[in-house]
Amino acid sequence: MTNMNRSVYLSNVRLADGQRVSVSIVDGHIESIGVQVVAPHDAPIEDGGGALLLPGFVEGHTHIDKSNWGRPWYRNEVGPLLTDRISNEREWRKTSGHDAAEQSLALSRAFVQAGTTRLRTHVDIDTDARLRYLDGVLATKETMRDTLDMQIVAFPQSGMLIRPGTVELLGDALAQGADVLGALDPALIDGDPVASLNATFALAERYRKPIDIHLHEPGEIGAFTLKLLLDRVEAMGMQGQVVVSHGFCLGALPERERDALLDRIAHLRVALLTSAPPSRPVPPLKLCRDKGITMFGGNDGIRDTWSPYGVPDMLERAMLIGMRYDLRRDDDLMIAFDCVSDAAARGCGFADYGLRAGARADLVLVDAETVAHAVVARPKRKLVVANGRIVARDGALVS
């Protein structure tokens, strides 16, 4: 991706409401969008051909360090438990020659090719690999810095307290460039939710980092952990700085208990992430939005030892969110797209996002009649602009 021009003029494109507009991009930012927009001096002119204009997509939760994308097929014979998957993956990564730098770069490029311009990835930190995977993803972040706005979560995939030394490694990861502190199932994995959350919030306070916690814990166990988490958010003044990923318990609790938790989540400005898995309970999307909770979407793992599924295409993830939540009306499918665009940018804290003057110029053109049509049909990306540069055309990266 060697195109260094960060000023572009897009003509003859359509907004979601059907209005035909032009877009002036100067120095990597949107200067203006409208009907009578003047082209910047000496900027190349791109005729959009009446294509639908979308903001660059946001991947809110993935694991690019562990993907098997582009490699030979991985034969999955892992056991059914979460701990089976964790142990199997850790051993496979040690013995297979898997390269976190190579794989994270390949997957990042595939994301950009399909229109993703902002991405939050969780990177395994454990006492076997130490910071090796982080080093690989930091290299990818540097390589992609002009194209892909990436946040790295230091994530204790194998547990934290149950593997002595992990707390210190997480601190090292935050000091060396991780943007967010991750956590995992304080009750079912670490076995002590109070001590685990205390350690997590102490690290976040020390390094002044936000938190993104994987909470797979079901039903009442998950609710208990979530209450402890919310207590700490309130006590430490971390409103607006915490994401709860998955939150399966919120899809399985009795309505009264669930709603009380959701009201508190809204009050503390905790965001929720879902990959909309078909086989697990999920937080109620529309109810969360009605309560003012930011709820957004992500792929989770893509083609790794956990699962053979997933592709780096956020329009497909939006479609899967729509299917999981039975979103059929066009206005409901706009909600699914919001989960991989504005809501995801808000939930992750990505700045300068959107189709507005002053925002970073991250744009996608597709041949679709409406946003709902784009989500369902997932057409080839006609043009992808990232940080003001044309980086993909007709579904292929621009070299």
Rank of each mutant, 00 (worst) to 15 (best):
25 I>V: 12
31 E>M: 08
58 V>W: 06
80 P>L: 09
85 R>L: 12
83 T>G: 04
70 G>T: 00
42 D>N: 14
29 H>T: 14
37 V>G: 03
49 G>A: 12
28 G>I: 05
96 S>R: 04
93 R>S: 03
75 R>V: 12
65 D>W: 06
26 V>W: 03
89 E>Q: 13
25 I>R: 02
58 V>L: 05
27 D>F: 00
83 T>E: 13
38 V>Q: 15
58 V>D: 01
67 S>Y: 03
40 P>S: 05
45 I>L: 14
71 R>A: 15
38 V>N: 14
60 G>P: 03
47 D>E: 12
52 L>I: 07
25 I>G: 04
35 V>Q: 15
36 Q>I: 02
52 L>K: 02
71 R>H: 10
34 G>P: 04
97 G>E: 10
90 R>A: 13
25 I>P: 02
80 P>T: 06
30 I>Q: 03
92 W>I: 11
37 V>F: 04
60 G>D: 05
65 D>F: 01
75 R>M: 10
80 P>N: 08
39 A>R: 13
90 R>V: 10
67 S>K: 02
59 E>F: 07
96 S>L: 08
60 G>Q: 04
93 R>F: 11
80 P>I: 07
43 A>N: 09
71 R>E: 15
39 A>D: 05
67 S>V: 02
47 D>C: 11
59 E>D: 04
95 T>W: 04
81 L>S: 15
68 N>V: 00
32 S>M: 10
62 T>W: 02
25 I>E: 02
54 L>K: 02
69 W>H: 11
32 S>F: 00
69 W>F: 15
88 N>M: 00
49 G>L: 10
51 A>H: 13
50 G>K: 05
57 F>E: 02
38 V>H: 14
56 G>L: 07
46 E>D: 05
64 I>W: 04
42 D>V: 03
82 L>Y: 11
44 P>W: 10
75 R>C: 04
87 S>N: 15
39 A>T: 08
50 G>D: 09
71 R>Q: 15
49 G>Q: 12
67 S>H: 01
26 V>D: 08
39 A>H: 03
31 E>D: 14
62 T>E: 01
84 D>P: 02
95 T>R: 11
42 D>H: 13
36 Q>C: 10
27 D>A: 13
72 P>K: 06
71 R>P: 00
93 R>H: 13
25 I>Q: 02
91 E>G: 00
74 Y>F: 14
